[in-house]
Design a protein around this nucleic acid. Sequence first.
DNA 1: CAGTGAGCGAGCTTCCGCTTGACTT
Length: 784
Amino acid sequence: MAKNLLIVESPAKAKTIEKILGSDFEVKSCYGHIRDLEKDDMGIDLKNNYSPRYIIPEDKEKVVKELKSTAKKSDEVWLATDEDREGEAISWHLCEVLGLDPKTTKRIVFHEITKPAIEAAVRTPRLLDMNLVNAQQARRVLDRIVGFELSPVLWRKMSMRNSLSAGRVQSVAVRLIAEREREINAFKAESTFKLEAWFSAHDTAKRPVTFKAEGGKYKQAQDAEAFLKSCIGATYTVKDIQVKPTKKTPSAPFTTSTLQQEASRKLGYSVSKTMLLAQKLYESGKITYMRTDSVNLSETAMEDIKKAIEKGYGNRFIQVRKYKNKNESAQEAHEAIRPTYMDETSVDDSDTRRLYELIWKRTMASQMADAELEKTIAKIDISTNKETLTAQGEVLKFEGFLKVYMEDRDEEDITEEDDAEGMLPPLVVGQEPAFKEMKATERFSRPSPRYTEASLVKKLEELGIGRPSTYAPTISTVQKRGYVERRDKEGVKRDYRVLLLAKDKISSETHQENTGAEKAKLFPTDLGLVVTDFLNQHFTEIMDYGFTAKIEGEFDEVAGGQQKWTKMIDEFYNPFHKDVENTLENAERIKGERELGLDPVSGKKVVARMGRFGPMVQIGDVSDEEKPRFAKLKNTQSIETISYDEAMDLFRLPRNLGQFEDTDVVVNIGRFGPYVAHDKLFYSLGKELDPYSVTLEEMIPLITEKRQAKQERTIKVFEKEKIQLLRGPYGPYIKIGLRNFRLPKEAQERAADLTIEEVKAFVEEAKANPPKKAAKSAPKKKKA
DNA sequence: CAGTGAGCGAGCTTCCGCTTGACTT
């Protein structure tokens, strides 16, 4: 047994550090936080200075037990959790749980897992910083209060059956998406006519080439046409040529958020997929820690990268760079994300290869020379008027970092000018290039694009909201709660005009383009919109984009010892809690109601609103004598944008198509999409069939086909006991009502011959040994 | 699997941030 026990947060780190420190140290991991606030009564004693009640969560009991026994056998325990607020708190919890004295226990920190860094840390231990620990307690307590007081307000004021939630981070994330959606809905596209002319000249090899020059923009078609007219019969002369050297600089190495963004743009990965793959690479020792906000590279890594660049591309491509974090909220407990060894240019595993190579290239590029370009701008005079045309070209003089890597841009950061850069033939002043044609093309302005998962992470990071370890979970939470959906949107066709001047004649054409199409974007649901409105109205401070930044400033004061954490929380809690009570008492239930018009048949009001089961349209009122009519909104529709006609269309279901085999065939949309009901059985309508227009003739083959498929799935039915033996994707299984039970392997082969007694025994057996997952989520006992 | 839609009120839900497994109805 080693005489020293050193505790870190991550087990992969523990392994590496143990190798570095040798036999004097046993290095163990505590797997992150080992204690958390109890859930009953918020786990906070509000009347007693916000005193927190901590417990060891069930899934941490094993780790804690092991740490306790190892600590007991060791002479000395060293705390080496991450150097940030959370890490300091973890160390303090370790003291509390392992019975260590915070006034004497050695606390060490390092920002990189390298031999010199760790050895230096061990030489200079310090003590626990209780101010920093208290800043973390303030953060934890505030988040618990906000989450556990706000969520129940939603339960009371919303008539939805699912478990709603609100919190400092998630509610603001939803707000961003809701506001972007409304911005897009309110957007009015404006069109301008953009002028472009094409000329021919000769390149250096005397081959004819075509190049493009741009002119001005015109708001009105007639102005553009007038300009084209004025150019009839003109000659064009190169008046001025400017050649400017420019350069491009590489981006900093990856942090969690920039990795998520680039993997989304270049590889199309969701943030959770990126994190899953990165975790695999980290655990197999291929990359450094993947949850980081630091762009820093260790000295040893810089040396390694330099060598790799020299070997691969030569000295000229090296440019050593130190990157600084732009983000004030960064806590920089780790390095940037980089390969552990640069001479491994790829990995064997096909799952993780593309992500690894992305990280490798970005890391290389970050220490490489600027790319050098030459930009040429030629001005071309028109003999018949005073306007000039501009031709631009760009030539790469020295590749530099572009040899390995170029960062992609988000849709919203791309400007029109960016795609204008191509090659220009050599031109001289006074030259008269041959005119081919000139076009004025109608172009429409575009609204901001909807967020992708990754661009939302970028925005949250800019606002200082959330941490590298929570970006992916936050995005899945807002989707799980039904506030946000990730989906595609089909574009709509739009006409645009093109005016053409060629061979001294002007002609006009109309073309079509697709606009507004989006892929894998985040859309707010009606639920997300109404909840956001409600929170905005009653809890303005929490929903403010600057709220996190503001309280971070106060946490910093606590960490600096200028303020007591309980006082800070008290100042927050008193007004906040008043708002909660006031809202519970006075706020109306959340309905999100919107009036659409009157029903021509009954003359009653048609409204769109939130119901118990989601967004719907309603004709009439519950207080009317006659019951109101209801219809569910389609997935793509929204309370805010649905038109009167679209709403009335929804009442065309259910449709009775007529009879087949003497029973009605009825089409409707249910919980699982469009279906047809016939003879007490239900069949899903495929995507290609529209419930509003299908005919009886189209339905009959579907019914007979599905009926047969259902029969083939059935192995045996015990009519009396209402037990079925069915063939599923995982093999035969037992079905009783809505519940499924597994069949033991040996019984699966002879499923058709099983007796009712045998089946009943298997059901009992399955009930007695439920799958482990079910056992884990079993209801916990509650105190009386 | 394929209904429902108000309000009452059992007894449930819920936060953010640290970390990995165990898990395949």
